[in-house]
């Protein structure tokens, strides 16, 4: 019996790095876009720099989604 442990390990590592990477990048984007005071309330509109950093994070996540769709073809 030839159990493909190597393939399962590859799936785990790929999912951990790619899935975890997208989650972290998106979380960073949301975090940067949501400055808060000590009570967790919004402190107003984010600065242009914050918007730019968030846009970059979301763009990379969007590219990852695009690559995911590409792998289906």
């Amino acid at each position: 019996m030839n159990v493909p442990w190597g393939d399962l390990g590859t799936v785990l590592m790929a999912a951990l790095f790619l899935g975890g990477g997208v989650i972290v990048l998106y979380a960073v984007g949301v975090r940067v876009l949501s400055p808060a005071d000590a009570d967790g309330e919004s402190t107003g509109r984010p600065s242009p720099l914050r918007i730019a950093i968030t846009s970059l994070c979301f763009a990379i996540c969007g590219a990852a989604v695009g690559y995911g769709i590409y792998t289906l073809l």
Binding site: V24, A27, G29, V30, A36, G40
Partner: peptide, 26 residues
Amino acid sequence: AVAATGMFLLYTITRRAARRRTREGF
């Protein structure tokens, strides 16, 4: 395992973010 790791990192990163905007973002 992937979801648990991602969830832990996500909460760590957004712990001090504005709550309402964070919920909307996710």
